[in-house]
Design a protein around this nucleic acid. Structure first.
Lengths: 339, 339
DNA sequence: ACCCAGGATTAGATCGATCTCATTCTGACT
DNA sequence: AGTCAGAATGAGATCGATCTAATCCTGGGT
């Protein structure tokens, strides 16, 4: 009875089976008011009976319109990245778009391949956190592609593409001010972060300026950049502590770096009184870490939301809500001696 | 000069501009060997000059083929979920597919909406970790849709859909055995996890059986299920500790739950000698937590890989590599008194 | 009985690719 | 020179929807 090799049901099949035209079925599917209530009912019923499923690909070929937005992310295992994606997704779905997240694993070639695929799929727009080694060539290719594009977190060579990022000058200054002001530290350091990660440069610079402005020093060795994993930070801090005591106050490039540093300090018997530590990101875990980690919150999900709003505005869908990134906020806890 | 309202370049434009036919251009784009090297060169050059981009949507309308696979995930901020996605993505891209991750935020309606959208886009297949409250209706809808489907982590009512999950019986048994055997605990508990999360049932059952088999008890109050966040665990543990001392050994539903529990124990001055704690998942942070957290590793990225292989086999793309989930492994550390 | 406004419906062209099958162009061989 | 196999190319139909512009109703007014 059931035809094994039967083709997919299309609008024409529904129409024929009902004695109406394709156009009528099409109108019903799109919820047009032009079709009468009774016709609508019977079409919907018949479509359901035949197991019809709308073919979005065919539709968007005709309409030249697509409501998929690609989120090109370097590493979704990083909770910060995941939160940004989630925030963006929230706004996008709210306004009828569909957010597809793709992961580049910080690999530039993968990134370009995925980007090209998205463009070939004719997505409505792309939000991207570029992989670390993304160069001018790649940027040029992307901006050449004409897809509405918003770049996040990591600055791009200027190609006139909208950019959203954390306010790194504020973050650096805020960290230095807290350590020198509230805790009276005179020897500081900025610990962790890869030089390729653009925010690191701006943050350290602001940190350094605020520190020297307050009459404090910034340790050169401790402030050397390195890969920013939690375990990397633990190992590097352990090595440095073999060579002598730590600076009096340290701003870490991320909370994960702070976790590694704190463990190394703990091993050597140093307490927040000896070395005040502040992280950046304010991950959920920081509250429960031992000691609880002071951190500068950047509100990643709000950044994601802002980003999505900017993209949608560019696409032509009006949105409400802020389109400027949120201000960073310092949450003082035990790791700097505040708790 | 530049035409403001110029349409997108298509194969026909490239063909005309070169005096060849659409078919030739099409063959070049697909890398067919049927076309001569010189023709290929000139077509590629002209396409590039005109800024042609391949329209994948049009192509897959004709070919009835699509190499996008949807990954429907409940919460990518959860590192476990993120790792699974990454593992699946790895295998998929390796074999020429394109993994698009979408997030349901544990919301069943969102999940169904996203699933429908994926089906309408005619994706090649779907890998899904169902949202917690997914019921029979939703499952029926999905299996009715005819899309190749693999379900992950959380069991489904049986609709003949392939299922991949952690080996919960082994995990529960392993935890109980370590606590009773290596540490000689006589009073145990299984802490955390929502009853809706299917693995919890199987894990606790195996844990309980192994515990009683070894002559130990399993505390009813401590073993009551609750929402499994880190902060939830901290609060619940704090409340329970007000009422009396903890059981001698505790297996936690996840590492995050263990973090919360350990903090609460610490606040009350309990050490691993008083209460041995083992987590499940073996997150990266567990090594650096204070105390370092013993944990049963489930190798989520390998689970993701297995899952992708099963889906691809179903789609008809041959893969090599295991299609059975990996064995869990216990990593003993300080939190149970091993470190 | 006739006309007509306007709501409901439809035929045919179109979006940008691929497929089938026919046709043209080579150059090697007799 | 003539033949022909095989490589290279081309014309028209097709995938499943939407759009445009035209046609078919239906009932109220005269």
């Amino acid at each position: 009875m059931a035809n094994e090799t039967r083709r997919r049901v299309r609008m024409l099949d529904v129409a024929n089976s009902l004695g109406v035209s394709r156009a009528t079925v099409s109108l019903v599917m799109r919820g047009s008011p032009l079709v009468s209530a009774t016709t609508r009912e019977s079409v919907l019923a018949e479509a359901d009976r035949l197991g019809y499923v709308y073919n979005q690909a065919a539709a968007s070929l005709r309409t030249q319109r697509n409501d998929v937005v690609g989120l090109v992310m370097p590493d979704i295992v990083n909770p910060l990245v995941a939160e940004v994606s989630l925030g963006a997704q929230e706004v996008l779905t709210e306004l009828g778009y569909f957010a597809a997240i793709v992961n580049t694993s910080e690999n530039v070639e993968t990134q370009q391949r995925l980007f090209r695929t998205l463009v070939q799929q004719r997505v409505a727009g792309v939000i991207i956190i570029p992989a670390l080694r993304t160069g001018a060539d790649e940027v040029a290719e992307m901006s050449r592609s004409q897809v509405p594009l918003v770049v996040l977190t990591r600055a791009f060579p200027d190609f006139g593409v909208p950019f959203v990022g954390t306010d790194d000058a504020v973050i650096g200054g805020m960290g230095a001010e807290h350590l020198t002001g509230t805790h009276g530290c005179r020897e500081l350091a900025y610990f962790g972060g890869n030089l390729l990660a653009t925010p690191r440069v701006a943050r350290e610079q602001a940190f350094r300026e605020a520190a020297t402005g307050a009459g404090a020093t910034c340790d050169e060795v401790w402030s050397e950049p390195f890969d920013a994993g939690m375990v990397d930070a633990y190992q590097r801090a352990s090595v440095l502590l073999e060579q002598g005591p730590p600076p009096r106050g340290i701003l870490c490039h991320s909370d994960q770096v702070a976790y590694g540093l704190l463990k190394a300090l703990q091993n050597k018997g140093y307490t927040p009184k000896d070395c005040a530590v502040v992280g950046i990101d304010d991950l959920l875990q920081s509250q429960l870490w031992t000691p609880s980690v002071s951190s500068i919150a950047v509100q990643p999900s709000e950044i994601g939301r802002v980003c999505a709003r900017i993209l949608l505005t560019e696409i032509g869908t009006p949105t409400d809500g802020a389109i400027t990134p949120p201000e960073p906020v310092l949450h003082p806890r035990t790791s700097c001696g505040c708790g």
